[in-house]
Design a protein around this nucleic acid. Sequence first.
DNA 1: CCAGATATGTAGTGTTCACTACAGATGTGG
DNA 2: CCACATCTGTAGTGAACACTACATATCTGG
Lengths: 201, 201
Amino acid sequence: MGMGRPREFDAEMALDQAMEVFWRHGYEGATIAQLTEAMGINPPSLYACFGNKEGLLKAALDRYTKLRNIWMEEVVAAPTARAVAKRMLMGIADKQTDPANPPGCLLVQGGIACGTGSENVPFELAARRAQNEDQLRDRFIRAKAEGDLKPTSDPAALARYVSAVSVGMGVMASSGADREALRQVADVAVQAVEAQSADKT
Amino acid sequence: MGMGRPREFDAEMALDQAMEVFWRHGYEGATIAQLTEAMGINPPSLYACFGNKEGLLKAALDRYTKLRNIWMEEVVAAPTARAVAKRMLMGIADKQTDPANPPGCLLVQGGIACGTGSENVPFELAARRAQNEDQLRDRFIRAKAEGDLKPTSDPAALARYVSAVSVGMGVMASSGADREALRQVADVAVQAVEAQSADKT
DNA sequence: CCAGATATGTAGTGTTCACTACAGATGTGG
DNA sequence: CCACATCTGTAGTGAACACTACATATCTGG
């Protein structure tokens, strides 16, 4: 039995285009017509490959978080908690104002609130944001064990804090904040982590 | 000439209900059917009173920001920059997890990204968030003039930072973070402002 | 109590949406 | 070269959407 006609488009390239549409318009704001046009395919190809609109979003999120997690590995490789926070937040400031992408973060722009029938989209995004928070928390737990963070510090709270600042910066980027403004926010934010760091005597 | 039949519903009470629907589902996710049902009126009454869906959102935002600005006055009345930040962020933690309202902040949940035809909704929300940031900035400028903040501090950056943390906390609240988790974030965040405060000798 | 003005409820309007039926095209295995 | 399987483009499908026409109801001013 034959294997059928091969697909004529590259799924990953198509996903990159879909990602950009979701990023710019959100899940509900993105229409199938916009998505198919950006992807350079017709609706039946989209549905054959990704199931439905939500399946396409999940595939785009998978691709987004895969790249992001690679970057997060570099972030948590920084030598101290303070350096981790600085590398993370400065990187966020740059990435969220990268003209190659829509401003902000897909995990926020994708859809914070959705209508009936798409309730699990915000949930899906939150779960992926939580992954990064967990990576940070684990890194801060280690920093505390190494004596890099004060014995009184709360690694989970610190991770949640850095995550919250990242998200807030993303929203600001999407509403027009420029790179310098975000870097200043990052700079201030790092000082809270510094306050939790052990004195360098 | 007569003045016509009087309206049978209370506009402010109806707005409160509409506000909750936008808050929970976002601008695009909220349907006229949901809004009219929550408001206890029929579509023609809605359109006669508010023009269209976007007009209703703006009216709801006006009501929301009016109450919020009153609260912000209390916030900036705190004696020091640190106290302002603490009062603001602790208040945010409580308000965004108040079971009387949907979780998070209407100015974020309302719509960070929107589809074609609603592009100015995110813009509208951003403008109102900026109001609060301006209030904070003015307060921090005063704090710097009073010697409460270090001469090297940047009041605008500090205000942007506190605003970013608020927004980030709102997103976290909407995705399930509880009050205690947000308070911990607020607690850490305040330390960055403390680091910008002049030493109390 | 009548004329003008505005609100209300019913029942739609056209449009846009996510999604798909179907026929033709293009591949593989025998 | 044929049976079969999968993809592709055209052209829709029903459903849900924001919004409204219209008849009726309820007010004020004279």
